[in-house]
Design a protein around this nucleic acid. Structure first.
Lengths: 191, 191
DNA sequence: TTAGCTGCAAAGTATTTGCATGAAC
DNA sequence: GTTCATGCAAATACTTTGCAGCTAA
């Protein structure tokens, strides 16, 4: 039985058919999960959870991004609280912490079937992909060491075709940036 | 043919039997590789490459670590140069950039058969493991998208047995740190 | 009523950059 | 001689922390 997101399961979720409880990441399960640990359910924490719940699959936010979104919807949550909440939710296993190429962390809901990333180290272009084998291998590895796995992330550092074409390995000029550097991210499916 | 470390191959290395050229990461290949791109071989760059070459397998250094080592051996290379060199060598595919839990990057030579990491998000304890499947999957994925792969890293975020034992999912007190938090890292082999 | 939480401001840590001097080619 | 690299110091980016007042339980 896979237990990648176990912490907010209730006892009756523990059978194998309930691997992905419907209540996962709901406000009431957040509340229960916080209370179990002696933490409190605040409006700020609810609001932040809601942002992640309504974020399209494949998107991920930095602390700054999240703070901006909150301001846009009229919420006045301080950046400190944003950082504290992201850290807390990551420690609880609710959020997945991604280290991509931009130099700061990104967060998204820690859902089943994690996806992985291919990142061009020249232009930071990022492509997501899914692959069940990775999860299987990871889970087995964690179990072999007696650890409880919350998340697994495979990150490929690559050179994009544009950079290769420009002669990445020989004549690529300093400071060259591929045209796609401005673009954000692409979503891709399992092969 | 796998091309994870292609940039400093010479033309006669291009046959499949020379997948891992002996000259890989030598001073003369560093020189050639730099010159190809219009960069220069400086004593600082040589010295830094040498540190990585003599680093035991499985070790990795942060910019600060590297700077300290240089001072210890009497070299006076500025921290700026250390950062600039690490960045340059990572962009060239010579070094592998690791994002573990400590909040700053670590570097090591980008050798064949990359290893992966299991990191406890409670105490930062890190275990290395190797697994050839990961490389195969990654290479296939990069190729499918037309990208040139330099490196792949699988990172598992886990809860260590100690934290689980203390009741991670229910009663783990704030600020709890497992006894192993002070320890550094463990090496492990492929299963 | 008693912790825990938030917001603000200040501090801390990691990394980058401008510029004058020095080194590689 | 020209161009690139280094070292220093200053700047930047990101994140954490102390503390007083606020809020959930």
């Amino acid at each position: 039985m896979f237990h990648a997101f176990p912490n907010i399961m209730t006892d009756q979720d523990q059978d194998s058919s309930a691997r992905i409880p419907l209540s996962l990441h709901s406000v009431s399960s957040l509340k229960a999960s916080l209370h179990q640990r002696g933490f409190r359910l605040t409006t700020q924490r609810q609001t932040i959870l809601h942002i992640f719940q309504t974020l399209p699959q494949g998107n991920h936010l930095s602390a700054e991004d999240l703070h901006d979104r909150l301001r846009q919807q009229g919420e006045r949550i301080s950046l400190s609280t944003v950082y504290r909440t992201l850290h807390l939710m990551a420690q609880m296993g609710l959020l997945r912490e991604l280290e991509l190429a931009e130099g700061h962390k990104h967060y998204e809901l820690n859902l089943p079937s994690p996806h992985h990333h291919l990142v061009c180290i020249q232009c930071n272009q990022t492509i997501e992909f899914a692959n069940d084998q990775i999860f299987q291998v990871s889970y087995k590895q964690a179990q072999a060491h007696g650890y409880h796995m919350l998340d697994c992330q495979l990150t490929l550092h690559v050179i994009c075709p544009e950079a290769m074409h420009q002669g990445w390995h020989t004549t690529l000029p300093r400071g060259w940036i591929c045209d796609r550097a401005a673009q954000k991210s692409y979503i891709d499916q399992e092969d």
